[in-house]
């Protein structure tokens, strides 16, 4: 049923990572993502892998949930790694007709797989440990500098906030409309693709109408509460960087230097 879908996979908790400033988390994630793609030999790759396991363990979210987040992309990972396996250059170590596998191909497959998996795990860690509102606030705060070049930072953040607020409401509404049309004999489960798409018209139109009506209402409500854009606006929750954030930055900086050292000490395989 539609109403079972919950948006944002935030798992409330009190771990070290949960308590980091969301801005730190975003910046650290970006640094980490860059470094994943700068691993050129197996030593630096294993360093990153170990670090990945480390933050998963201290994030206070069950590893099972991380595995679930991988399930969704398993197919993409498999396809890319298999493609990489066969597109290597150099001496083939195994050949069958036009299909050949080279050492380079194997290396590429391993690196691509681990990099994608780490990328997904790290992004999941961010969304698992940070509430959507905190994320929005952090993005707004980080993007503030580009507001100077007239990028509508506040407006974009406000839109995200409203979207987060209304997605569950609209999902519930979709469910209600579907039930109502089913009660009038709407058949959404049979027929060819054209009839199925057509069957959604009686659901989509009321949904759009209602979304517009809501938008109008919400705009009025916001105006009544003195909303007049981002200028002169304060926030109740002020984001604070603490010692904890400094520690996190230090740990990631160490890992990054470790990766660079490994890259320099040993020959690159990629």
């Amino acid at each position: 049923m539609v109403r079972d879908v919950t948006l944002g996979q935030f798992y409330p908790g009190n771990s070290f990572i949960h308590r980091l400033d969301p801005r730190s988390k975003i910046l650290l994630l970006i640094g980490y993502l860059v470094i994943i793609f700068c691993t050129f030999n197996y030593l630096s790759l294993s360093l990153v892998t170990i670090f990945t396991l480390f933050y998963i363990l201290i994030s206070g979210v069950s590893p099972k949930i991380y595995l679930k987040s991988l399930k969704v992309i398993i197919v993409i990972v498999l396809i890319t790694s298999v493609l990489n396996l066969f597109y290597g250059t150099g001496e083939p170590i195994w050949q069958w007709g036009i299909i050949s596998i080279t050492m380079n191909g194997i290396n590429r497959a391993v690196f691509v797989t681990i990099r994608i998996v780490c990328l997904i795990l790290a992004s999941s860690c961010l969304t698992f440990t940070t509430s959507p509102t905190d994320l929005t606030d952090a993005i707004e705060s980080l993007l503030k500098p580009i507001a100077k070049i007239h990028f509508p930072v506040h407006e974009v953040a406000m839109m995200m906030t409203l979207a987060l607020r209304f997605v569950p409401t609209l999902l519930e509404e979709t469910d209600k409309i579907m039930q109502a049309q089913k009660a009038r004999g709407a058949d959404m489960d049979s027929g060819n693709i054209v009839t199925r798409v057509k069957a959604f018209i009686p659901i989509l139109i009321p949904l759009f109408v209602s979304a517009f009506r809501r938008a109008y209402d919400v705009a009025t409500a916001m105006e009544c509460r003195c909303y007049h854009g981002g200028a002169g606006r304060t926030r109740m929750k002020v984001l604070h960087m603490t010692k904890r954030d400094a520690a996190a930055f230090a740990v990631v900086a160490l890992m990054i230097s470790g990766v660079i050292v490994c890259n320099m000490m040993f020959p690159a395989v990629m």
Partner: peptide, 16 residues
């Protein structure tokens, strides 16, 4: 569903 008709709350939201 044709034999047992059901009018939901705020049924005007289903007009399309």
């Amino acid at each position: 569903r044709f034999r047992v008709g059901m009018v939901f709350q705020y049924p005007e939201y289903q007009l399309f």
